[in-house]
């Protein structure tokens, strides 16, 4: 590990210094460096992350999505086909206004696409999060840089409905082609079935 790297030259500080126009926020909660990025800057930043020897992120370990539709909101207590999945019973939902002060407004912030990078040569990790709105959940595809992005992005499209422009083959991965909707979204009830053969239950 690079011994000269202290807080002043941490990965997120370097990234912030290189791309001040794209980086919204950084933190290192529990020691895991995280950078929030604007979606316009994603491809450029990703290129730098891969090619720059300071970062040297040759592995895109994971690409997933978070749906904040029900975050901090009180919902009905029982899951059913009509209402979306609630917060677990032991969590007291509290609205969190500080969360929304990121240069994006509440209405425009529904999804976070999360990227986990790992560098095998420098052995460090970084997490990138790109907030997206509900109306236009579209983002650049990273398949030209890391082949692992291919199926991860297909999964994100399938389960969340996030569109990756530039993806060579953006179709459903886990659900079948005729499936309507995106199951991991918070407004898709967990037991709503759309069977191809057989009864609904």
């Amino acid at each position: 590990m690079d011994q000269t790297r202290g807080p002043a030259t941490s990965l997120r500080a370097r990234l912030h210094a290189s791309f001040p126009q794209h980086v919204l926020e950084t933190h290192a909660y529990r020691g895991q460096e995280t950078v929030l990025l604007k979606r316009e800057g994603l491809l450029e930043v990703a290129r730098v992350l891969k090619s720059d020897p300071v970062f040297a992120f040759d592995f895109l370990m994971d690409l997933t999505c978070v749906d904040y539709l029900t975050f901090g909101r009180v919902l009905s207590s029982r899951p059913s086909l009509a209402t979306p999945s609630p917060l677990p019973y032991y969590m007291t939902p509290k609205p969190d206004p500080e969360r929304w002060q990121r240069g994006v407004s509440d209405a425009a912030y529904r999804f976070d696409v999360v990227y986990h990078f790992f560098s095998s040569s420098r052995v460090h990790r970084l997490r990138l999060k790109v907030p997206l709105s509900a109306a236009d959940p579209a983002l650049d595809s990273l398949t030209e840089l890391w082949k692992s992005a291919d199926w991860f992005e297909r999964e994100a499209w399938d389960l969340f409905g996030v569109v990756f422009t530039g993806h060579p083959n953006l179709r459903r991965l886990l659900m079948y082609e005729g499936f309507q909707g995106h199951p991991l979204r918070k407004d898709y009830p967990f037991n709503k079935r759309q069977p191809l053969v057989g009864p609904v239950n």
Partner: peptide, 15 residues
């Protein structure tokens, strides 16, 4: 793939 997609992530939201 997807023939063994069993919805783990969705079920994990429930408890």
């Amino acid at each position: 793939i997807g023939y063994l997609h069993r919805g783990f992530e969705k079920m994990s939201e429930l408890g």
